[in-house]
Design a protein around this nucleic acid. Structure first.
Lengths: 220, 220
DNA sequence: AATTATTTTTAGATTTACCTAAAAATATAA
DNA sequence: TTATATTTTTAGGTAAATCTAAAAATAATT
């Protein structure tokens, strides 16, 4: 199949493409922590192998083949994260780097058995959906906490930021997956949000609220 | 630390050194499935990094540092094998290749937690000892089945051959780890061994008997 | 001891993924 | 629309791990 590096490129292109449509050379370079010139080289190789469509100076888009390969890597990454948290008692802010290595282990049997061992989880420790072995995602409806209105209730089901600092901060505030919350106030001045969680009132910055994902239970 | 390739060299040198003292270039090349010229290159690098002592045309020996690194890799390999068999229901003949990849994942925390998760196993699915996190092996006393005398009883505790074909053969004969056996006869003609296992009489070739390791319970 | 065979090393190339520096294309602003 | 800025690509080079072919050292044989 592909080398570690190729797999990393595919994964990053996939994630970048989720937001925008086609993906710029510089954006890839930034994510890969490498130089644009190196990205051009690799893009050509991936295009030759049929993983991306590439028009000079226009960036790339994943082909069907490329998308499938990328989804497989995402699947592995997220399953390993579940393993680390559920079985080895890692914290949700400790798993990323190790999963980044584990995702490259090449064995279909391994991943299928791991999936089964973990009970076919639908999402990883950050709430991100885990595609099944056919590459299909369960449809998940996230509402950003920042978009909830005063009085709305919801459950924390994910985060859109995976930095250790952010996750540790949430942990300290008790804002972990599955927790029930209610919006009690939104501050005009700085847009910070007052929320009710486990009977307590806490205040979180707008920046934090932007990266918490919820499934809303509607108005109180 | 080291690259995958360097780690594989260290591991192979370690295993070769277990038998002989210092290790020949050609022997390494054979194990690594590469050419002697490539081995010479790598040996120089490992020597420069202080993993091996090297005298031109005289082969190599592992330094303390090299030995520790090698043992760490062996530890990882064997722990992952236990994981695959105990938790993911792999057969003992299916685990080698996957463990070969998993052993290179770089995370001390991962291995320590995995060790704990598995209940600090002392040996892998083939009976090979697993060094603890300080690199220490539990002392294990193996007697080759071929060296047992008629009337001797023993427990199968390991194998000295890891090929899938051999392991599948043992599986079919019911000769798996932990099984009690008794030597009932040794054929003069071809040296094949008659053994009593689970009340049944079976015959195994000399070649097979050489690669089964037992802990003898002494004479019947 | 001289010859032959084997093992090991050197020399010079190749491939992968990366780099820098400069050129080319595209986008933005005056 | 010309000038400026940004993005992307090309050209040429490096380091890691490999290779082949040939040379050098060591071992085995006659």
């Amino acid at each position: 199949m592909q080398s570690f590096t190729e797999e990393n490129y595919l994964k990053i292109i996939y994630h970048l493409a989720e937001k925008t449509g086609n993906v710029q050379t510089n954006a890839i370079a930034e994510q890969m922590q490498t130089k644009p010139a190196s990205v051009t080289d690799m893009i050509k190789k991936l295009a030759e192998k049929g993983f991306v469509d590439y028009i000079k100076y226009q960036g790339v888009t994943l082909t069907e083949k490329g998308k499938n390969a990328a989804i497989e890597i995402v699947r592995k990454h997220r399953l390993w994260e579940v393993f680390l948290v559920d079985k080895l008692n890692f914290k949700w802010d400790e798993v990323h780097d190790v999963a980044e290595e584990l995702e490259h282990i090449k064995s279909t049997a391994l991943i299928e058995r791991l999936d089964e061992f973990l009970g076919f989880p639908k999402s990883d420790p950050h709430g991100d959906p885990i595609p099944d072995k056919n590459g299909r995602f369960a449809i998940t409806q996230f509402i950003k906490l920042i978009d909830l209105k005063v009085g709305d209730q919801g459950t924390i089901t994910g985060v859109s930021q995976h930095s250790s600092a952010f996750l540790k901060h949430l942990e300290k505030l008790g804002l972990t997956l599955g927790k029930q919350i209610e919006i009690s106030d939104v501050t005009d001045f700085d847009g910070s949000v007052e929320i009710l969680i486990a009977g307590k009132q806490i205040n979180i910055s707008r920046e934090v609220a932007k990266h918490i994902l919820t499934s809303s239970n509607g108005k109180n």
